[in-house]
Simulated assay, not measured.
Amino acid sequence: MSKVKYYYDSESLSYKKIERRKRTTFKYAAVFLLASALFGFLFVFIASQYVESPKERALKRDLQNTQLQFELLNKKMDEAEAVLANIADRDNNIYRVYFEANPIPEAQRKAGFGGVNRYKKFEGFDNSKLIIESNKRLDILQKEIVVQSKSLDEITKLAEEKEKLLAAIPAIQPVSNKDLTRMASGYGMRTDPFNKTRKMHWGMDFTAPRGTPIYATGDGVVARADNRATGYGNHIRIDHGFGYVSLYAHLYKYNVRKNQKVKRGDLIGFVGSTGRSEAPHCHYEVFKDKQRINPINFYYGSLTAEEFSKLLEHASLENQSLD
Protein backbone atom coordinates (compact mmCIF):
# COMPACT_ATOMS: atom_id res chain seq x y z
CA MET A 1 0.00 0.00 0.00
CA SER A 2 1.46 3.32 -1.05
CA LYS A 3 2.28 5.82 1.58
CA VAL A 4 -0.08 8.77 2.05
CA LYS A 5 1.73 12.10 2.01
CA TYR A 6 0.63 15.31 3.76
CA TYR A 7 1.68 18.93 3.67
CA TYR A 8 1.23 21.73 6.32
CA ASP A 9 -1.17 24.50 5.36
CA SER A 10 -0.08 27.67 7.16
CA GLU A 11 -3.39 29.41 6.57
CA SER A 12 -5.54 26.77 8.16
CA LEU A 13 -2.77 25.74 10.54
CA SER A 14 -3.46 22.11 9.74
CA TYR A 15 -2.01 19.15 7.73
CA LYS A 16 -3.68 18.35 4.48
CA LYS A 17 -3.43 15.27 2.34
CA ILE A 18 -1.43 15.63 -0.92
CA GLU A 19 -3.64 14.72 -3.81
CA ARG A 20 -1.73 13.66 -7.07
CA ARG A 21 -3.56 14.30 -10.26
CA LYS A 22 -3.77 11.58 -12.86
CA ARG A 23 -2.43 13.94 -15.53
CA THR A 24 0.69 14.60 -13.48
CA THR A 25 1.20 10.89 -12.89
CA PHE A 26 0.87 10.19 -16.61
CA LYS A 27 3.34 12.98 -17.41
CA TYR A 28 5.90 11.61 -15.00
CA ALA A 29 5.44 8.13 -16.40
CA ALA A 30 5.84 9.38 -19.97
CA VAL A 31 9.00 11.30 -19.10
CA PHE A 32 10.41 8.24 -17.38
CA LEU A 33 9.66 5.93 -20.31
CA LEU A 34 11.09 8.43 -22.80
CA ALA A 35 14.24 8.82 -20.77
CA SER A 36 14.57 5.05 -20.48
CA ALA A 37 14.12 4.64 -24.22
CA LEU A 38 16.70 7.32 -25.00
CA PHE A 39 19.13 5.79 -22.54
CA GLY A 40 18.57 2.32 -23.99
CA PHE A 41 19.06 3.55 -27.56
CA LEU A 42 22.21 5.40 -26.54
CA PHE A 43 23.52 2.30 -24.82
CA VAL A 44 22.80 0.08 -27.81
CA PHE A 45 24.42 2.62 -30.18
CA ILE A 46 27.60 2.86 -28.09
CA ALA A 47 27.69 -0.90 -27.66
CA SER A 48 27.32 -1.43 -31.42
CA GLN A 49 30.29 0.85 -32.06
CA TYR A 50 32.68 -0.66 -29.56
CA VAL A 51 31.35 -4.12 -28.74
CA GLU A 52 31.09 -6.88 -31.41
CA SER A 53 28.26 -9.35 -31.41
CA PRO A 54 29.01 -13.09 -31.78
CA LYS A 55 27.64 -12.95 -35.34
CA GLU A 56 29.86 -9.98 -36.21
CA ARG A 57 32.89 -11.71 -34.74
CA ALA A 58 32.12 -14.84 -36.81
CA LEU A 59 31.72 -12.77 -40.01
CA LYS A 60 34.94 -10.91 -39.29
CA ARG A 61 36.80 -14.19 -38.84
CA ASP A 62 35.35 -15.47 -42.13
CA LEU A 63 36.45 -12.28 -43.90
CA GLN A 64 39.98 -12.49 -42.48
CA ASN A 65 40.19 -16.15 -43.46
CA THR A 66 39.03 -15.30 -47.00
CA GLN A 67 41.68 -12.58 -47.30
CA LEU A 68 44.32 -15.00 -46.08
CA GLN A 69 43.24 -17.64 -48.60
CA PHE A 70 43.44 -15.13 -51.45
CA GLU A 71 46.89 -14.04 -50.31
CA LEU A 72 48.03 -17.67 -50.26
CA LEU A 73 46.46 -18.21 -53.69
CA ASN A 74 48.35 -15.23 -55.08
CA LYS A 75 51.63 -16.56 -53.65
CA LYS A 76 50.99 -19.92 -55.32
CA MET A 77 50.22 -18.11 -58.59
CA ASP A 78 53.53 -16.22 -58.23
CA GLU A 79 55.34 -19.55 -57.98
CA ALA A 80 53.37 -21.07 -60.88
CA GLU A 81 54.06 -18.01 -63.07
CA ALA A 82 57.80 -18.25 -62.30
CA VAL A 83 57.89 -21.96 -63.23
CA LEU A 84 55.83 -21.37 -66.38
CA ALA A 85 58.06 -18.44 -67.39
CA ASN A 86 61.11 -20.70 -67.08
CA ILE A 87 59.45 -23.39 -69.23
CA ALA A 88 58.40 -20.79 -71.81
CA ASP A 89 61.96 -19.43 -71.96
CA ARG A 90 63.40 -22.90 -72.57
CA ASP A 91 60.62 -23.63 -75.04
CA ASN A 92 61.36 -20.53 -77.15
CA ASN A 93 65.15 -20.42 -76.83
CA ILE A 94 66.13 -24.11 -76.70
CA TYR A 95 63.46 -26.55 -77.88
CA ARG A 96 62.04 -24.47 -80.72
CA VAL A 97 65.49 -23.31 -81.84
CA TYR A 98 66.75 -26.91 -81.93
CA PHE A 99 63.74 -28.17 -83.88
CA GLU A 100 63.68 -25.09 -86.16
CA ALA A 101 60.22 -23.96 -85.06
CA ASN A 102 59.13 -20.33 -84.68
CA PRO A 103 59.02 -19.08 -81.07
CA ILE A 104 55.63 -18.23 -79.55
CA PRO A 105 55.27 -14.41 -79.10
CA GLU A 106 55.00 -13.14 -75.52
CA ALA A 107 51.79 -11.30 -76.40
CA GLN A 108 50.19 -14.57 -77.46
CA ARG A 109 51.29 -16.35 -74.27
CA LYS A 110 49.96 -13.62 -71.91
CA ALA A 111 46.94 -12.44 -73.88
CA GLY A 112 43.95 -11.39 -71.77
CA PHE A 113 40.26 -11.82 -72.47
CA GLY A 114 38.37 -9.20 -74.46
CA GLY A 115 34.66 -8.60 -74.84
CA VAL A 116 32.19 -8.58 -71.95
CA ASN A 117 33.18 -7.94 -68.35
CA ARG A 118 33.90 -11.45 -67.07
CA TYR A 119 34.28 -10.24 -63.49
CA LYS A 120 31.12 -8.15 -62.98
CA LYS A 121 29.74 -10.71 -60.53
CA PHE A 122 32.65 -9.96 -58.16
CA GLU A 123 31.92 -6.22 -57.97
CA GLY A 124 30.31 -4.51 -54.96
CA PHE A 125 32.05 -6.45 -52.17
CA ASP A 126 34.51 -5.26 -49.55
CA ASN A 127 37.35 -7.14 -51.25
CA SER A 128 36.16 -6.87 -54.85
CA LYS A 129 39.50 -5.57 -56.12
CA LEU A 130 41.43 -8.45 -54.54
CA ILE A 131 38.96 -11.04 -55.84
CA ILE A 132 38.86 -9.58 -59.37
CA GLU A 133 42.67 -9.30 -59.69
CA SER A 134 43.13 -12.86 -58.41
CA ASN A 135 40.61 -14.22 -60.89
CA LYS A 136 42.22 -12.29 -63.76
CA ARG A 137 45.64 -13.72 -62.90
CA LEU A 138 44.20 -17.21 -62.59
CA ASP A 139 42.47 -16.97 -65.99
CA ILE A 140 45.63 -15.72 -67.71
CA LEU A 141 47.69 -18.41 -65.98
CA GLN A 142 45.29 -21.11 -67.17
CA LYS A 143 45.49 -19.74 -70.71
CA GLU A 144 49.30 -19.70 -70.58
CA ILE A 145 49.26 -23.33 -69.45
CA VAL A 146 47.01 -24.27 -72.40
CA VAL A 147 49.31 -22.42 -74.85
CA GLN A 148 52.40 -24.06 -73.35
CA SER A 149 50.77 -27.48 -73.36
CA LYS A 150 49.94 -27.18 -77.08
CA SER A 151 53.49 -25.98 -77.73
CA LEU A 152 55.00 -28.98 -75.95
CA ASP A 153 52.69 -31.29 -77.93
CA GLU A 154 54.08 -29.70 -81.08
CA ILE A 155 57.66 -30.07 -79.81
CA THR A 156 56.97 -33.75 -79.02
CA LYS A 157 55.87 -34.33 -82.61
CA LEU A 158 58.91 -32.45 -83.93
CA ALA A 159 61.15 -34.52 -81.65
CA GLU A 160 59.60 -37.73 -82.94
CA GLU A 161 60.19 -36.58 -86.52
CA LYS A 162 63.73 -35.52 -85.63
CA GLU A 163 64.35 -38.91 -84.03
CA LYS A 164 63.05 -40.63 -87.17
CA LEU A 165 65.27 -38.39 -89.32
CA LEU A 166 68.37 -39.12 -87.23
CA ALA A 167 67.65 -42.84 -87.43
CA ALA A 168 67.00 -42.66 -91.19
CA ILE A 169 70.08 -40.69 -92.30
CA PRO A 170 72.77 -43.05 -93.69
CA ALA A 171 75.28 -42.62 -90.86
CA ILE A 172 77.58 -45.66 -90.78
CA GLN A 173 79.89 -47.48 -93.19
CA PRO A 174 78.21 -50.27 -95.13
CA VAL A 175 81.20 -52.53 -94.43
CA SER A 176 82.71 -52.80 -90.95
CA ASN A 177 86.29 -51.54 -90.54
CA LYS A 178 87.43 -54.90 -89.23
CA ASP A 179 86.30 -56.55 -92.48
CA LEU A 180 87.89 -54.02 -94.84
CA THR A 181 90.95 -54.84 -96.93
CA ARG A 182 91.13 -51.13 -97.82
CA MET A 183 89.04 -48.18 -98.93
CA ALA A 184 89.84 -48.45 -102.63
CA SER A 185 88.30 -45.35 -104.12
CA GLY A 186 86.29 -42.31 -103.08
CA TYR A 187 83.75 -39.91 -104.52
CA GLY A 188 85.02 -37.71 -107.37
CA MET A 189 86.96 -37.88 -110.62
CA ARG A 190 88.71 -41.27 -110.92
CA THR A 191 90.35 -43.47 -113.56
CA ASP A 192 88.01 -46.05 -115.05
CA PRO A 193 89.49 -49.56 -114.54
CA PHE A 194 88.32 -50.76 -117.96
CA ASN A 195 88.98 -47.97 -120.45
CA LYS A 196 91.48 -45.99 -118.30
CA THR A 197 89.71 -42.67 -118.90
CA ARG A 198 88.90 -40.14 -116.18
CA LYS A 199 85.24 -39.95 -115.25
CA MET A 200 83.07 -39.13 -112.28
CA HIS A 201 82.93 -41.85 -109.62
CA TRP A 202 79.61 -41.28 -107.84
CA GLY A 203 80.24 -43.37 -104.74
CA MET A 204 82.83 -45.01 -102.53
CA ASP A 205 84.41 -48.45 -103.02
CA PHE A 206 85.02 -50.59 -99.93
CA THR A 207 87.36 -53.50 -100.76
CA ALA A 208 86.63 -56.71 -98.83
CA PRO A 209 86.67 -60.46 -99.46
CA ARG A 210 83.74 -62.08 -101.25
CA GLY A 211 80.97 -62.88 -98.76
CA THR A 212 81.84 -60.05 -96.32
CA PRO A 213 78.64 -58.73 -94.62
CA ILE A 214 77.13 -55.47 -95.84
CA TYR A 215 74.96 -53.48 -93.43
CA ALA A 216 72.11 -50.98 -93.87
CA THR A 217 73.47 -47.53 -93.07
CA GLY A 218 70.12 -46.16 -91.82
CA ASP A 219 66.51 -47.11 -91.13
CA GLY A 220 64.33 -47.47 -94.20
CA VAL A 221 62.52 -49.70 -96.67
CA VAL A 222 64.18 -51.80 -99.38
CA ALA A 223 63.13 -50.14 -102.65
CA ARG A 224 65.08 -52.51 -104.93
CA ALA A 225 67.02 -55.77 -104.61
CA ASP A 226 67.83 -56.86 -108.16
CA ASN A 227 70.40 -56.78 -111.00
CA ARG A 228 68.41 -54.72 -113.49
CA ALA A 229 70.52 -51.52 -113.27
CA THR A 230 73.37 -51.17 -115.80
CA GLY A 231 76.81 -51.72 -114.28
CA TYR A 232 75.70 -52.27 -110.69
CA GLY A 233 75.15 -56.01 -110.90
CA ASN A 234 73.32 -57.37 -107.88
CA HIS A 235 72.45 -54.27 -105.91
CA ILE A 236 70.15 -52.97 -103.16
CA ARG A 237 68.54 -49.57 -102.79
CA ILE A 238 67.08 -48.48 -99.46
CA ASP A 239 64.62 -45.59 -99.24
CA HIS A 240 65.26 -43.91 -95.88
CA GLY A 241 62.59 -41.22 -96.24
CA PHE A 242 63.24 -37.49 -95.91
CA GLY A 243 64.67 -37.59 -99.45
CA TYR A 244 67.53 -40.02 -98.63
CA VAL A 245 68.31 -43.20 -100.62
CA SER A 246 71.38 -45.43 -100.25
CA LEU A 247 72.71 -47.86 -102.88
CA TYR A 248 74.89 -50.96 -102.39
CA ALA A 249 76.27 -52.52 -105.61
CA HIS A 250 78.17 -55.58 -106.94
CA LEU A 251 76.76 -57.91 -104.23
CA TYR A 252 77.44 -61.63 -104.13
CA LYS A 253 73.92 -62.29 -102.74
CA TYR A 254 71.04 -60.62 -100.88
CA ASN A 255 69.81 -60.98 -97.31
CA VAL A 256 66.68 -58.81 -97.82
CA ARG A 257 63.82 -58.53 -100.28
CA LYS A 258 61.94 -55.62 -101.84
CA ASN A 259 59.58 -53.67 -99.50
CA GLN A 260 61.26 -55.13 -96.39
CA LYS A 261 61.76 -52.70 -93.50
CA VAL A 262 65.32 -52.52 -92.19
CA LYS A 263 67.10 -50.82 -89.29
CA ARG A 264 70.53 -49.24 -89.27
CA GLY A 265 73.09 -52.02 -88.84
CA ASP A 266 70.88 -54.82 -90.23
CA LEU A 267 72.66 -57.34 -92.46
CA ILE A 268 71.29 -56.77 -95.98
CA GLY A 269 73.76 -58.61 -98.28
CA PHE A 270 77.29 -59.79 -98.95
CA VAL A 271 80.26 -58.37 -100.86
CA GLY A 272 80.71 -59.70 -104.38
CA SER A 273 81.98 -58.65 -107.82
CA THR A 274 78.87 -58.79 -110.00
CA GLY A 275 78.14 -56.33 -112.78
CA ARG A 276 80.84 -53.93 -114.02
CA SER A 277 83.39 -54.71 -111.32
CA GLU A 278 87.12 -55.48 -111.39
CA ALA A 279 87.36 -57.12 -107.92
CA PRO A 280 85.21 -57.95 -104.87
CA HIS A 281 84.07 -54.73 -103.23
CA CYS A 282 80.97 -52.82 -102.14
CA HIS A 283 80.23 -49.77 -104.26
CA TYR A 284 78.22 -47.40 -102.04
CA GLU A 285 76.25 -44.31 -103.07
CA VAL A 286 73.96 -41.85 -101.23
CA PHE A 287 71.19 -39.82 -102.88
CA LYS A 288 69.47 -36.76 -101.42
CA ASP A 289 66.36 -35.59 -103.27
CA LYS A 290 67.44 -37.76 -106.24
CA GLN A 291 70.87 -36.10 -106.43
CA ARG A 292 74.05 -38.07 -105.68
CA ILE A 293 76.06 -36.65 -102.77
CA ASN A 294 79.40 -37.60 -101.19
CA PRO A 295 78.81 -40.47 -98.72
CA ILE A 296 81.85 -39.50 -96.66
CA ASN A 297 79.81 -36.75 -95.01
CA PHE A 298 77.58 -39.33 -93.29
CA TYR A 299 79.91 -41.56 -91.27
CA TYR A 300 79.49 -39.89 -87.89
CA GLY A 301 77.72 -42.95 -86.53
CA SER A 302 80.52 -45.52 -86.69
CA LEU A 303 83.97 -43.93 -86.91
CA THR A 304 86.30 -42.30 -84.42
CA ALA A 305 87.93 -38.99 -85.33
CA GLU A 306 91.17 -40.79 -86.19
CA GLU A 307 89.40 -43.38 -88.35
CA PHE A 308 87.47 -40.68 -90.15
CA SER A 309 90.66 -38.71 -90.86
CA LYS A 310 92.27 -41.79 -92.43
CA LEU A 311 89.13 -42.52 -94.45
CA LEU A 312 89.04 -38.92 -95.67
CA GLU A 313 92.70 -39.13 -96.70
CA HIS A 314 92.20 -42.34 -98.70
CA ALA A 315 88.95 -41.16 -100.27
CA SER A 316 90.57 -37.98 -101.55
CA LEU A 317 93.26 -39.87 -103.55
CA GLU A 318 92.59 -39.71 -107.29
CA ASN A 319 93.32 -43.35 -107.92
CA GLN A 320 91.66 -45.98 -110.05
CA SER A 321 88.17 -47.08 -109.09
CA LEU A 322 87.05 -50.72 -109.07
CA ASP A 323 83.94 -50.18 -111.20
Results as ranks from 00 to 15, higher is better:
residue 181 T to F: 00
residue 5 K to C: 12
residue 152 L to Y: 14
residue 56 E to R: 07
residue 164 K to L: 03
residue 111 A to V: 11
residue 27 K to S: 15
residue 275 G to H: 05
residue 186 G to D: 04
residue 21 R to V: 10
residue 134 S to R: 06
residue 172 I to W: 01
residue 32 F to N: 11
residue 73 L to F: 01
residue 83 V to Q: 09
residue 261 K to S: 15
residue 296 I to W: 01
residue 38 L to M: 13
residue 114 G to A: 14
residue 233 G to D: 04
residue 220 G to H: 01
residue 281 H to G: 01
residue 89 D to P: 05
residue 140 I to G: 04
residue 178 K to I: 09
residue 80 A to S: 13
residue 177 N to K: 03
residue 206 F to C: 02
residue 68 L to M: 10
residue 72 L to Q: 07
residue 188 G to L: 02
residue 148 Q to L: 15
residue 307 E to M: 08
residue 318 E to A: 14
residue 21 R to I: 09
residue 203 G to A: 08
residue 206 F to W: 04
residue 182 R to D: 10
residue 84 L to R: 03
residue 77 M to I: 14
residue 309 S to K: 14
residue 115 G to P: 03
residue 103 P to G: 06
residue 110 K to R: 13
residue 263 K to E: 11
residue 277 S to D: 01
residue 125 F to P: 05
residue 280 P to L: 05
residue 26 F to S: 12
residue 283 H to T: 05
residue 280 P to S: 07
residue 36 S to G: 15
residue 10 S to H: 12
residue 6 Y to T: 08
residue 154 E to T: 05
residue 296 I to V: 14
residue 89 D to Y: 15
residue 301 G to I: 04
residue 264 R to D: 04
residue 284 Y to D: 00
residue 16 K to F: 04
residue 135 N to Y: 10
residue 33 L to H: 06
residue 188 G to A: 04
residue 53 S to N: 11
residue 118 R to I: 00
residue 162 K to W: 13
residue 45 F to C: 10
residue 164 K to D: 03
residue 283 H to N: 05
residue 27 K to Q: 13
residue 301 G to M: 08
residue 268 I to S: 02
residue 236 I to H: 00
residue 130 L to Y: 03
residue 306 E to D: 14
residue 305 A to N: 11
residue 22 K to R: 10
residue 132 I to F: 15
residue 128 S to Y: 08
residue 214 I to P: 00
residue 163 E to F: 06
residue 303 L to A: 02
residue 177 N to F: 02
residue 124 G to L: 11
residue 13 L to T: 09
residue 308 F to Q: 04
residue 261 K to H: 15
residue 285 E to K: 02
residue 147 V to F: 12
residue 186 G to W: 00
residue 274 T to F: 06
residue 204 M to F: 02
residue 199 K to E: 12
residue 310 K to E: 15
residue 310 K to N: 14
residue 44 V to G: 13
residue 322 L to W: 01
residue 177 N to S: 07
residue 282 C to W: 00
residue 9 D to F: 11
residue 291 Q to D: 13
residue 278 E to Q: 07
residue 106 E to Q: 11
residue 33 L to P: 03
residue 9 D to Y: 10
residue 152 L to E: 07
residue 130 L to M: 09
residue 4 V to I: 14
residue 156 T to M: 14
residue 101 A to R: 05
residue 97 V to Q: 14
residue 252 Y to L: 15
residue 318 E to K: 14
residue 286 V to F: 02
